[in-house]
Amino acid sequence: MTTDMPARMLRLLSLLQTRREWSGHELAERLGVTGRTVRRDIDRLRALGYPVEATTGHAGGYRLASGTAMPPLLLDDDEAVAVAVALRTAAGGLGGIEETALRALVKLEQVLPARLRGQVGALQEATSTIAWESRGPRVDAATLTVLAAACRDHEIVTFDYTTRDGTPARRRVEPHSLVASGGLWYLLAYDTDRDDWRIYRLDRLTQPSPTGRRVPPRALPDPGPDPAAYVAAKIATAPVRYRAVAIVHASADSIRARTWALADRIRPLDENTCTVDCSADTLPRIAQTLAALDADYTLDADPAVLTHLRTTARRTLHAAGSGSRD
């Protein structure tokens, strides 16, 4: 018999989540209590937000239904490991839900027992995913969760970082937000050594280490307070190695729908024409952005960009010409 009321309610909730419907008699037997106690515990679960419905029939019973809010779930060990691995995979690059998956992953890993964290890590290391439509470098999910937790807790972190010109550096920052854009993840943080706000690409960041020191949150300067808008504005005006601006014969809305170029870099000229700033630090990324336009365009670009595009075009034409013919 379960005499500890909180433990009994957790056991009751677990039973309700494992089967579609239970009779009151079955629940009483499983818990070693009376039917009256079961009814009282059901009322307590309802008061906590769990939508437990009473069912009609020969003996009547109970079932856990969908509700207007999401109450806490109970997961066994295998379920917790499976959900954590799935969330890590989604957070690392599954288009459209990365940030949502990351928030859920941080909550789950915060309460995950140490014995299960090891299982999650081992399974993640042994699992590979084919990213058929990856639009950017994949980011280690462990790095994401460490930084997301630091953003939430306003905890200073240190990490190794490779700058745009390939120089290794060590950074110490107050994390503010993580932003996903254009197939890339960015960390928006206040750099304590430089006494200024900085944006870091997570694919260039390794070995993030929480310091245990928490600080009051800082307010973003203009154009704050939206982190995504702040990052977009800074990236759009940041210096890049190669310049390339296209005048595209398509509407700005249609280009936004089929390219990962930043929205701030797509500007309408009229209903059927827009400019797209495809400038980047690497030549292949510029070529990928231009290919995704899927429309006619004219290009104003650095000589290195034009040379790279001509070389790529010659290789493509040669490959197409050497293909088998009917």
Rank of each mutant, 00 (worst) to 15 (best):
residue 287 A to F: 02
residue 210 P to N: 12
residue 291 A to R: 14
residue 254 S to N: 11
residue 257 A to E: 14
residue 211 T to P: 05
residue 253 D to I: 10
residue 284 P to D: 13
residue 282 T to Y: 13
residue 297 Y to P: 00
residue 256 R to H: 08
residue 264 D to G: 08
residue 209 S to M: 12
residue 252 A to W: 02
residue 304 A to K: 09
residue 280 A to Y: 07
residue 195 D to I: 09
residue 187 L to T: 00
residue 264 D to H: 12
residue 248 V to Q: 04
residue 205 L to H: 04
residue 180 A to W: 11
residue 200 Y to G: 06
residue 223 P to W: 07
residue 229 A to L: 09
residue 250 A to S: 14
residue 269 L to Y: 11
residue 270 D to R: 14
residue 173 V to G: 01
residue 279 S to D: 12
residue 261 A to I: 13
residue 262 L to A: 12
residue 206 T to D: 13
residue 252 A to R: 02
residue 247 I to T: 15
residue 205 L to I: 10
residue 276 V to H: 01
residue 182 G to N: 07
residue 245 V to N: 02
residue 302 D to Y: 06
residue 173 V to A: 05
residue 182 G to A: 10
residue 234 K to D: 10
residue 230 Y to R: 03
residue 307 T to Y: 08
residue 237 T to S: 14
residue 201 R to H: 05
residue 180 A to H: 14
residue 233 A to Y: 00
residue 215 V to M: 15
residue 246 A to S: 09
residue 199 I to R: 03
residue 299 L to I: 10
residue 249 H to T: 11
residue 205 L to K: 00
residue 292 A to I: 01
residue 174 E to Y: 01
residue 286 I to V: 12
residue 268 P to M: 10
residue 174 E to S: 13
residue 176 H to G: 00
residue 176 H to P: 00
residue 229 A to D: 14
residue 301 A to R: 03
residue 176 H to V: 03
residue 257 A to H: 07
residue 274 C to G: 07
residue 201 R to M: 10
residue 260 W to I: 15
residue 246 A to K: 02
residue 240 V to H: 11
residue 299 L to H: 01
residue 239 P to T: 08
residue 271 E to L: 14
residue 273 T to C: 14
residue 193 D to A: 14
residue 300 D to G: 04
residue 184 L to A: 12
residue 240 V to F: 04
residue 185 W to G: 03
residue 219 A to N: 06
residue 235 I to N: 00
residue 303 P to D: 14
residue 205 L to W: 02
residue 244 A to D: 10
residue 195 D to F: 05
residue 218 R to A: 13
residue 236 A to F: 05
residue 301 A to S: 10
residue 239 P to D: 11
residue 212 G to R: 08
residue 199 I to Q: 04
residue 231 V to I: 09
residue 290 L to H: 00
residue 202 L to G: 01
residue 264 D to C: 08
residue 222 D to F: 12
residue 200 Y to E: 05
residue 221 P to G: 09
residue 216 P to S: 13
residue 295 A to R: 03
residue 175 P to D: 08
residue 235 I to D: 04
residue 241 R to N: 11
residue 286 I to K: 04
residue 281 D to R: 08
residue 298 T to W: 04
residue 177 S to H: 13
residue 187 L to P: 00
residue 207 Q to H: 15
residue 197 W to E: 07
residue 248 V to A: 05
residue 246 A to W: 06
residue 247 I to D: 13
residue 209 S to H: 14
residue 187 L to H: 01
residue 173 V to L: 08
residue 186 Y to I: 03
residue 277 D to E: 13
residue 303 P to Q: 07
residue 297 Y to V: 06
residue 242 Y to G: 08
residue 183 G to I: 09
residue 244 A to S: 12
residue 194 R to M: 13
residue 226 D to K: 00
residue 254 S to Q: 13
residue 183 G to F: 10
residue 210 P to Y: 09
residue 177 S to L: 02
residue 265 R to C: 12
residue 197 W to D: 04
residue 251 S to G: 15
residue 199 I to E: 05
residue 297 Y to E: 04
residue 234 K to R: 15
residue 196 D to M: 09
residue 306 L to F: 04
residue 267 R to V: 15
residue 214 R to G: 09
residue 237 T to P: 01
residue 229 A to V: 09
residue 296 D to E: 15
residue 182 G to V: 02
residue 245 V to G: 01
residue 301 A to W: 03
residue 284 P to R: 13
residue 266 I to V: 15
residue 305 V to R: 04
